[in-house]
Simulated scan of single mutants.
Amino acid sequence: MVDKSEKVVWLARIGFATRGVVYVLLGYLALTTAKYQTVDDGAGDAFAMMAEVPVGWAVLYIAAAGLLGYALYRFSAALFDIERKGTGAKGLAHRAGYFASAVVHTGMAWTAAKFAGGARHAGEDQSARWAESALGYSLGSTALGIVGIALIIAAALQARNAVTADFMKHVSSRAPQATCWIGRAGHAARSVVFAVIGWSLLRSAWFERSSEVLSLGGAINDLRGTGWTFTLVAAGLLLFGVFSIILARYRTIPDPSPDRSFR
């Protein structure tokens, strides 16, 4: 009989695969969209493409479940330290990055579920709407600032991974030979996007304006006009998708149950 923790591990693997498909589609859209057009909503655009395939609603519900499982896995890594990062400054930085990743993928799961339920479009400015709701509370700007800082920390860690390839410590030796270089390119591109989104959240918190917040698609659009930088980031996002699909099979995933993670 499969216990709850094992179910979360399998959902995390589905989440890696789903994340991979989303980033492949996102990179493809960014590379093929005309220079002066935009990627409307990042992951939302990818989910809209999924909705067009036969029984797309079922695919999207599986995607939503997988992304939620992945988010729970990242929340477990942040709160219960299942990745064994510790409580030192470096460990806490990693855990802050995991928390930011969990928040991002929870939002992606919500968007996928909305499309699965029949939504034609999740909205171009969903991130701004969430930020506007947060700013309506007394500590909303502080919360946005914390998430922004977490995303910038995550961006720094992604950049570090691009240089050191530390992510390979969690990848089986049976993975394809090119996995390391695909992962490096993907992490480098993702670090740029995370930094742009994190900075937008900090601006939103400082000026208390939800319009400052950029979604994943908005961050990509913000890089348009940078020439080869934009092209390299878009190609890197596509490669990060390929890397994530490889991880779905070859990533070593710790038991997410907090009472077992320290055995």
Rank of each mutant, 00 (worst) to 15 (best):
R13C: 10
R13Y: 08
G15D: 01
G15C: 05
F16Y: 10
T18K: 01
G20P: 12
V21E: 07
V24Q: 00
Y28C: 01
Y36S: 12
A43N: 10
F47H: 09
M49K: 08
M49E: 13
M50D: 06
M50W: 02
E52G: 05
V55K: 07
G56I: 08
A64Y: 06
G66H: 02
L67E: 14
G69F: 14
Y70P: 15
Y70E: 11
L72Y: 01
S76P: 13
A77P: 02
A78Q: 07
L79W: 15
D81T: 11
I82Y: 13
I82F: 09
R84I: 01
R84Y: 00
G86T: 09
A89C: 05
A89W: 03
K90E: 04
A93W: 07
A96P: 00
G97N: 09
G97V: 08
Y98D: 15
V103S: 04
V103F: 13
V104K: 13
T106E: 00
G107W: 07
W110E: 10
T111M: 12
A112G: 03
A113F: 11
A113P: 04
G118F: 07
R120F: 05
R120K: 15
A131K: 07
S133R: 12
A134K: 05
A134M: 10
Y137Q: 06
S138N: 09
L139Q: 11
G140A: 10
G140E: 13
A143I: 14
I149N: 05
L151N: 06
I152T: 04
